[in-house]
Structure formats: C-alpha cells, structure tokens
Design a protein around this nucleic acid. Sequence first.
DNA 1: ATAGGGTTAG
Length: 695
Amino acid sequence: MASIVGCLPNISLTSITQFPENPKSLILQQCKTPKDLQQVHAHLLKTRRLLDPIITEAVLESAALLLPDTIDYALSIFNHIDKPESSAYNVMIRGLAFKRSPDNALLLFKKMHEKSVQHDKFTFSSVLKACSRMKALREGEQVHALILKSGFKSNEFVENTLIQMYANCGQIGVARHVFDGMPERSIVAWNSMLSGYTKNGLWDEVVKLFRKILELRIEFDDVTMISVLMACGRLANLEIGELIGEYIVSKGLRRNNTLTTSLIDMYAKCGQVDTARKLFDEMDKRDVVAWSAMISGYAQADRCKEALNLFHEMQKGNVYPNEVTMVSVLYSCAMLGAYETGKWVHFYIKKKKMKLTVTLGTQLIDFYAKCGYIDRSVEVFKEMSFKNVFTWTALIQGLANNGEGKMALEFFSSMLENDVKPNDVTFIGVLSACSHACLVDQGRHLFNSMRRDFDIEPRIEHYGCMVDILGRAGFLEEAYQFIDNMPFPPNAVVWRTLLASCRAHKNIEMAEKSLEHITRLEPAHSGDYILLSNTYALVGRVEDAIRVRSLIKEKEIKKIPGCSLIELDGVVHEFFSEDGEHKHSKEIHDALDKMMKQIKRLGYVPNTDDARLEAEEESKETSVSHHSEKLAIAYGLIRTSPRTTIRISKNLRMCRDCHNATKFISQVFERMIIVRDRNRFHHFKDGLCSCNDYW
DNA sequence: ATAGGGTTAG
C-alpha cells in the first residue's frame, strides 16, 4: 500500500488503517488515476466497507464518470452488486451515456426497467442523452412515451434533454413542441432550443428566437451568445452580431476566450476580417481554437496568403495546430497552389498521427487535386477509412479538372456501388468530367438521370455544364437551343460558356450573339470582349478583333490584371502582367529574355496577332512576353534545380501564345510544367500539353 | 448527482 501515500497526500501510511468514517468525498476527490481507485477499492474490499451502498456508489461514480477509461471497471463492480438501487443504475447509465457507449446505457436502462427498479428524473435525462448521442429517435420516443405514461411530473432537466434528443435526431419541430409546452424555462432551455436550431443549420430560427429573448427581456448568458454569434456569422447578420459584440464589451466579458473566439468568427464571416484580427490581437491568451478561427477567417475572405502567414506565426507562438486548423491551412494552400507548404502539412499530420477526419482527408484530396497531383489525391482517398459525399465529390471534381474524365466517371460508378448518394455538387463534377473528356452522350445521359434517378433538380450550373459539353464538342446550335429551352432565364455565365465554345470552333455569328446576351444581362467583363476579339482574329478578321478590343477601353471596363503564383521554398511569389516592367528585378527580366531566345531557336514564333491586339502602342513582342505566367516560369527556371517540376497557378485563362510558349519551354528546358488556370490544368511535358490544345 | 457552448470541407 506504499504508493497510496503519494496518491492520497493527506493520509499518512499509518492512517490508511484509519480510513475515514465516511470516505465518499475522499474517493471522489482524491482518486486521480485508475490506479488510485484500484487501491482504494482493494482496501474497501478487505475492510468489507463495500457493502455500504453509499460507499459503493462513490466508487462507481469515480470509475464511471470521473476517471477516464475506467467504465469497464465500473461495470465489473456494478455487476457484483446484489440488488443495485436506482441511484447505482443512474450513475452507470450516465457514465455509459457520456463515455462513448451510449448503446450500453440503453441496454442497462432496459434491464432496469425489466427489474422494475424505479426510474426518476436522473434516469430519464441520462438515457435521453444516450439516445441523443446515438441519434436513436425510436428509442428516444419510447423513453418519451414512458415518461408521459408514468405520469412523471414535468422536470426541466428532462425536458431540456428531450429538446436536445429530438433536435439531434432531426426532429426539430418536436423539439420546439417540447420547448413550447414547458411550464417554466430557464435560460438553459432557451439555449437548448438555440443549439437545436444550430445543429440543424436553421440559422434564421436562431436569430428569431434570440429576438424573442430580447423582447421578453430574458437575461441571457455566454452560451446564448455563442449560438447566436454562430448564426450571425452564417447569415452575415452584422446587425445582431455587433449588438452582441457591444454587449460583450459593456459587460466586460472580453476575457471570456470562448466568447471572444465566437465573436472573431462572426466578424470574419460577416466580411469584417480586420475587426476580427483586432479582437484576436487583443486576446491575452490565444488557444488553438482562436488561432484556427482567425486562420479560417482569412481563408474564407480569400486572403489565403495572410492565412498562411498567421499559421506560421501560430507555430512561432508554440500553439500546436489540430486537424481543424489544418483544414483551413490546406484550403489556403490549395487556393494559392502552395504545394510545398501543403505537402509539409500532410507530412506533419502523419508525423503527429493526427486524426485523418473526413473533413481533413477531403481537404487533402482537394489540395493535391488543385496542385495538379491527382495521383496523390487518389492515394489519400484510398487511405481514408471513412468517406462521405464530400470526399467522393472532391475526388471526382479533382479528376475531372485534371483531365481524367474517364476515371472520374469510374469513381462515380463505384460511389453509387458504395451506396453513397450523390448530391447536386457531385453532378457538377461528373458533368464537367464529361465535358473535359468530350463524352457528349454520357453527359446527356447523366444530366437526364439527375432528376429521374436521384431526385436532384438541375440548377442553372448544371445547365451551364451541359452547354459546355455540347459547345466543346462543337454542337453549337444544339447548345443554343438547349439554352433557349431552359426552365429559367439564362444568366451571363451560361452565355459566357457558349462564347468560349464559339472561339474554339470559330463561330463568329454565335459568338456575337452570345456577347450581346451577356451585355444585356450584366456589364461584360474584359475577358468576354477578349474572347470575341480572339474569335475574329482566328478567322482573320483582324480589324474587327481590334475594334472589339478597343471597346474595353472605350467602355472603361476594368481589366482584371493577370496574376501568376509560384511557390519556392514555401514562399509564394506573385507576378502581375500589368506592371511587369517596373516591379520585377533585372534578374527576372534577364531570365525571361534568355528563356524567350532559347525557345525561339527551337521554333517558337510569338503570336504577334495577339500582341497587336493587346497593346498597339507597345512593341508587339514585349507585351505578350510579359504575361504573368511567362515571368513566373522564367523565375521558376532560375530558382529551381534542373529537371524538377515547375508549378504555376494563374487567375485567368492561359492565352494561346503563353500556352504555345510553355510547350516549347517544357521541351527546351526538359521540365515538366504544371499550370493551373482559371478553368483547368495544363500539364506540359516534352513539348505537349495534357489538354491537347483544347481549353 | 442530472441540462445548453467556440474553429473545419465538395
């Protein structure tokens, strides 16, 4: 018994023989480890004190509720009790309900019922908690019926668990019915209802109920605010969000970290990332959740570079990321094409044996796919033990965008074989797979099966995919008819899709018509005029091409500057086409000149048509050679080792000249070059591109 | 003895 001294610091070795008369609080408070408990248990057995139900229940409570991983120990003690009283059952049911074996809690409840042991409010709330965790609606309903049948007097604890159980089982209406029928409601009841709405994504209802709380002047607490802030974030309801923000300040609650984290998240989701950052900087202790919230705030605001910077700062601050943090970090890497950083994150996840949750795995798949490494996506997919519709969809979309249309469709088939129900987004992926792989009939078939076989109503995006499938394959007239027969008015995106096909198939008439439709719906982007202009240029109507291009200036349409990113040693470098002359160093320009000279020697001819269209006032060649991707590739060539792959991501479509030049570069410099443009991937190798010059 | 809470994806 020597070691018990260390565990029970108030008792000396001799005093163990004088075990306290009533050792209940000693058992509950002093047993810090399973070992402590075992020794106390042994002592109680030896001294036959275990016959006292009060003492036994204290041991049970310690084993079933307070200590980790001792639930089996608790069960073995419980099973030795001759005729357990209801309080002993209650402790066990509650312990089982909390300790990940809610099914056993239910079984024990059943046993209790069979043995006619009286159940009470404690039994009911514990067993309902178990039902809630298991999403066992049927059993929950049975318990509810039993509560009503046994003439049980209303009790707020039980009613609150009923609300929780019904909400967790998706029966939010029943939950509300229970709530409405309560004779008295503390703030916990209101909070239970709010959290029920939250779990079901009914954000509007959260705000509605909170307005009621305000109206009735019910005093709310931090738990209330956390639910409501969550809803405000999802709804971008800054009005209520700020109201709570001011309340928090006025009540001096800023030191409540959980609350402040919710506030940060709300501001970030409402587009006020800088306000969120200010709150974040003012926190006196930032835990991993606060960091994760702020990082995801930047990522959602499309400020991924800042997200990654903050991630690096987090590591300097010795806060360890968890799988939630990594989801936002990988999302940012995917957006930026920051392959090295993302690869390191994957390595870190493995090294730290982080749980590969469905969300994290799905994000890894998306990350690799967006960096052009679709094989790695497939690997991750195969390693995952749990996959959901998001996982399958990410893989299918990744395959489609990387030109693996056929494989995407194969995975779609095996998704169905695995009884995973596709959703509307899955079909976007599947249809774009058909589009990239030029599988017209397959596309038609899948589009028609959406409503018929899967009960999914095609949205305008799906119609857009169909237009793309038809248009790419050259069925422009059919695509036009298809748009005409849509059940809703076409938007600019649909016409833009057709316009792109018109360029590919050199159909002037329909290109003109498409642009007309676009301008009728919204002010056209500069890219639309460029597509039409390119179409004219392709059929030799250079004057028209120039005329259309000049419209961009005349109409003062803002041009989106082309921007290419390349990541080197974990740092993302940005190159812009517009300010190429001024911003970049001599080193880069020298590299660019050298690169252009070398590919010309091998037969590259700059496309002066495009150059002429682009900027008549500048010398033709200079203009085109300064597209951002050429700068980024030139920089990549001098900064990376020979024969390694160069990866670029770009915010616009690649132009034909850059596409052509990159093919030459891949050959001359013996480099694999992967360019992710706005729409798809181009894998350049040995002078050829994976898109077969069709994009 | 019991009830309600923050960050994550296609």
